[in-house]
Amino acid sequence: MSNPIVFLYPGQGAQYHHMGGELRSGHPVFAASIAHSSELCSAYLSPSLLEVLYDPAKRKHHPFDDLRYSHPALLAFELALSDTLLAEGIRPALFLGYSLGEFVAMTSSGVLSREQAFTLVCSQAKAVLETTRASSMLAILSEESLFHHRDDLFKETWLAAVNSPGHFVVSGFPEVLAQLHVRLQAEGITSLILPVSRGFHSALVDPLRTRFFDLVTGIPLNASGLSHVSCALQRRLSPADFGPELFWAILRRPVQFQRTLQWLETSGPYTYIDLGPSGTLANFARQILPATSASTVHHLVTGFGREIESLRDFLEQRSHS
């Protein structure tokens, strides 16, 4: 009997121009889904989401960090990939959300309608830009303990995410993170500035709080049949969790992907499928799972092409399992 399937939805930092471009050209379900998502954003974005995401003048390596577009682009991409797998007969038991990916999980699991999700994500991006200062996030290839034991390095930064035993993220102002990057490099520690224009999951977004609560208060939610696992709360959500405080926790608390996956594994094994555009959560999951785990991990899109072939290979593998 096959393991239950868990869809993994990443957040900011995974996006790039032309993500899903091959699927858009070669799979009608993906194309229709992402076109519909662009229409749902039309009241908030001009030029359209599709025009910016698939701008022929842009290459994959060009920065895609304008929150007005990167927020809904990730939601649209991950929903389109979900729709594609569902159309191919892949049925998840659980949806695991990481940061912005929590809104995708809520939408895929039916808690939010697509109209609600795009209204919320587009409005949130606008509010973030209007209420907070420019800041950034730095991914660091080291143990989380480095952050806690090296105050000399990490003053004026906030722990934003713990992704795997050798990967965590901090938020801070650009000049602070630039200096930190240089100091880490001098100590032989690899780090990378993420393509994000705000330091989420830190005190840097606190000026947004009042306006954010105005956005999320009173949103009607369908909390029946919940199958959403949250990296903010590190567990499966219950109907009692849903409300403004949960939405704020998703934005403000550190993302605990490592601890959440370890908790989920206690009820495993599972088949984890990364529905992001870069395969980052699949990489983290492989680092987290012990060698004795019977769970399997898959990704479909990485940014290196072969999107149609990867989907076909995955479906063929599933048909023989």
Rank of each mutant, 00 (worst) to 15 (best):
S197L: 07
R198M: 00
G199H: 06
G199I: 02
G199N: 01
V205W: 04
V205C: 08
D206K: 12
D206C: 12
D206G: 00
D206W: 12
P207R: 06
L208Q: 03
T210Q: 14
R211W: 06
R211P: 03
F213T: 04
F213M: 07
L215A: 09
T217S: 15
T217E: 15
A223G: 07
G225R: 02
L226G: 02
V229L: 12
V229N: 03
C231N: 05
A232G: 04
L233P: 00
L233I: 04
R235S: 06
R235Q: 09
R235P: 02
R236D: 00
P239G: 08
A240T: 01
D241G: 08
D241Y: 03
F242N: 01
E245A: 14
L246M: 13
L246N: 05
W248Y: 15
A249V: 04
I250S: 02
R253C: 13
P254R: 09
V255T: 07
Q256T: 03
Q256N: 12
F257V: 01
F257R: 01
F257H: 00
Q258C: 12
Q258K: 14
Q258H: 14
T260C: 04
T260A: 10
T260R: 06
Q262E: 15
Q262C: 03
Q262I: 06
W263N: 13
W263E: 15
W263C: 08
T266V: 13
S267A: 14
G268L: 14
G268M: 13
G268Y: 08
P269D: 12
P269G: 10
P269V: 11
Y270Q: 10
T271S: 15
T271V: 10
Y272F: 15
I273W: 02
L275I: 06
L275C: 03
P277K: 15
P277G: 09
S278G: 10
G279S: 01
L281F: 11
A282Q: 07
N283R: 11
F284H: 06
A285V: 03
R286N: 10
R286D: 07
Q287T: 04
Q287C: 11
Q287I: 01
I288W: 07
L289D: 01
L289Y: 14
L289R: 11
S293G: 12
S293H: 14
S295Y: 11
T296A: 11
V297D: 05
H298S: 15
H298Q: 13
H299T: 11
L300W: 04
L300C: 03
T302A: 09
T302H: 11
T302W: 08
T302K: 02
F304N: 12
F304L: 14
G305F: 10
G305A: 12
G305V: 10
G305D: 12
E307Q: 15
E309V: 04
E309A: 12
S310P: 04
S310T: 14
L311T: 01
L311A: 11
R312G: 00
R312E: 14
D313G: 08
D313M: 13
F314W: 15
L315I: 02
L315G: 06
L315C: 10
